[in-house]
Design a protein around this nucleic acid. Sequence first.
RNA 1: GCGUUGAUGGUCUAGUGGCUAUGACUUGGGCCUUCCAAGCCCAAAACCCGGGUUCGAAUCCCGGUCGGCGCACCA
Length: 613
Amino acid sequence: MDKYEQVIELAKRRGFLWNSFELYGGSRGFYDYGPLGSTLKRRIEQIWREFYVIQEGHMEIECPTIGIEDVFVASGHVGGFSDPLCECKKCGEAFRADHLVENVMDAAGTLNAEQLTQVIKEKGITCPECGGEFNDAYEFNLMFKTTIGPGTGRQGYLRPETAQGMFVDFQRLSRFYREKLPFGAVQIGKSYRNEIAPRQGVIRLREFTQAECEIFTDPRDKSHPNFERFADKELTLYSQEGQEKGESVRMTVREAVEKGVIAHEFLGYNLALTNEFLTKIGIDPARLRFRQHLKDEMAHYAIDCWDAEIEMDRFGWVETVGIADRTDYDLNAHAKVSKTELYVYVEYDEPKMVTRFTVKPNMGKLGPIFKGKAKAVSEALKQLSEAELNQTEIKVTVDGEEVTVSSDMVEFAEETVKVSGEAVVPHVIEPSYGIDRIFYGVMEHAFEEAHILAMNEPVDGNIDGTAYYPTEDGNYGKTPIPADEQPSEYETRVVMHFSSRVAPVQVAVLPLLTREQLIDPAKKIEEKLREKGLLVTYDDSGTIGRRYRRNDEIGTPFAVTVDYETLQNDTVTVRRRDLMDQRRYPIEGIENMLYDLIYRDKPFESMGEPVKQ
RNA sequence: GCGUUGAUGGUCUAGUGGCUAUGACUUGGGCCUUCCAAGCCCAAAACCCGGGUUCGAAUCCCGGUCGGCGCACCA
């Protein structure tokens, strides 16, 4: 059993992840988040909001998950998100149909599947692998299609990314932020891609959760106002150059920007922010790196693009966040299709005097003569140079027809005007998170199968040669222990080392024994903790040891146990998951104490009295 | 989509053309028990779905679904 299997098995058994539609046999590419999974995911998303919405100030919006066709025509998904595929009848290999006919004709990319099939048949193109014949070509678009309204309705698509919503709302957002760059907006929600063959559990889904942030920046100034915050932060960078050598380097953000490894401050800042977020929710920094897209894999419009990759046991380095400078590509694309200019008017520090040549067609005269064509004629006139206009009879071409305009119908002059600013199409910096993959990364990095000494011995080591000790920040650390000191007899303890900020259960309240005298105070403590807003469970089934292990397995960081001493002096023990050590605290104020442990990074050792084992 | 391989309680698993389908763990109830999956009693719980062959199919055959792996795909 590899780690993936172990984690997925636990996830299924304990209510983190379930296959969707299991009752009916299931369907590939869909997963349910169970009670604990759902909570864990929400908590990850909530921390993401704290980062991007609260700290960075990029407000959250919510757009429909269904989009109308125009949106995806503009974004390129209707045309570009599908490929004509063609399969060999003999060996089953699938090929891009347009690539197959490329050598025998021009503009293969413009043909549809039907035309491609015909060309393949006519030219007798066979499988390059085995020489077999091809099936008919078919379009495979990765977007889910749907119909809006009754009857044939209007063509719609389930969104393949949340980003387009922010682009489509650009004008509204720009006004909301009082037209001052940079500004940003985020969206957390479901996106849909009809993957050909989804696999690898939650790594590739047909319905998945994205958290995307679009920051609209001034293309002329990509310095970051808050750059110093992360300038000296070291990141693991796997740059284009590094990938050639096959090695990543540790480098500060400042150094990387100065050396041109990272294109500019704005991207550098966002890489560091992503690093901060991922490590905060429990991704192991040693299994996290930033990989730069190679020149040929980068979208043609992007200036620079980095993926945050998380190392996973079975899948290797998995892309979980993409951080790209998408330039003005998306806004221009939507401007073109919607026929609406999308820009921000940026005022100069001081107005400039600009001399320019202006043409003013006299519509009062053009109208009666050219009627319906008048508009087109006037547009054509505006394109002419001074020399061309300086004729008694001006010739322009409209709809392929040459027309003559007399000089009294148009005025032109060079004039000097005051210009106080200019229209700027912002460049978009986009950090785009795949929440489901991150969720699995958190699960796997939290997972540990520790081997502990049998029977009542506290953990001192596990079989793969590590021992546990408390670190200064109140977590646990590992240190290698020599092979001859490792225990020979052990039992297995499965622990999810979730950060207490994301753990779906934060405190377990346990009466030592199933006795009424212990149950009553335990229930009262449970209620107190709930009022404080902590995620708490009460459990009195089975022996205390069994309950500790059950909670270890779902990653509950703290367990409060009511024992007989509680009845004498109103104190309880609090057990720390990672080290299985306990300290005794008064019941009075325990809710605040636990809150501080969970949310304020108070060290466990700083409170109460240790309990002798 | 192609090829390949698998599918038995919640989990892991034994098993065979034939009688009431193993076992462990888990779970629920109880007894006992003063802190790390202890013990005892009781209980609940499964042959992926649809066809076919057969007196009889969980087992053999075909198709489907789902999972693993390889190929292709992953703007």
